[in-house]
Amino acid sequence: MRGFLAVYLRELLIIWHRLPRMLLSFSVSPTLYLVAFGFGLGKNLTVGERPYLEFLVPGVVAASSMMQGFGINVEINVARFYLRIFEEFQAAPISNWSYVLGEILGGVTRAFLSTFVILAITALAGIHLHFGPVFFLGVFLNAFVFASLGVTSAMLIRSHADQALVTNFIITPMVFLGGTFFPVEGLPAWARVPLKLLPLTHASHLIRSAAYGKPVPMVSLLILGALAFGGFFLAYRSVDRARD
């Protein structure tokens, strides 16, 4: 238990020391998305009877919490290849699961911070949506799934350069295709089906439904829950692979 606390507290302290810089950088890309796609395309644009901006905000939250969750891999790589702190963890009497859980929750914490930044910008822009428990559950599950994948990839890669490949080929496409900026439903079936397999599509759906005050989409919720378990297990199994 203390092992988990140590790993998580370390991530919190790193966030704490960088907080002003971090909040500032979290606000850059959501602001750009809102300006470019929201205001730039015109206020009159609607998606399913709602202003496009209201459609866009939950999508940006989903994309951003995914990226920040997955972004824990960068911290782990720095700790492993540059600071070599990973060895300090390996030489400590802690279990793999406390290490993995500490890092995943580090990613989840970043995701929540970035979400709060977006919600603040949204409030300033005068956009009103529902931000209740289901909305935050969606953010949590989404961040948890991608932080697990972030930990897994950080354990499996052999160098920092490999990491860019994973990010460019998997994460970046998903940001654009996972129901974030346009509705997946509008696509022809051949494109819709593969996109429905992406975890981010379900996260966007869940987060957007909650923001609209609609009933909880149980299928997406269950899929994300299952992926969170699966992701955790995968991350757990990958830790031993990082040892030579």
């Binding site: 203390r2 092992g3 606390l5 140590a6 790993v7 507290l9 370390r10 302290l13 790193i14 020391h17 960088r18 600071l83 070599r84 702190i85 060895e87 300090e88 963890f89 400590a92 009497p93 802690i94």
Partner: peptide
């Protein structure tokens, strides 16, 4: 292999918890 961004005290604290 110290945590350069953390303080001296924080480095010892994390180790103790570990």
């Amino acid at each position: 292999n110290l945590d350069l961004e953390l303080t001296v005290w924080e480095n010892l604290l994390i180790h103790g918890l570990l």
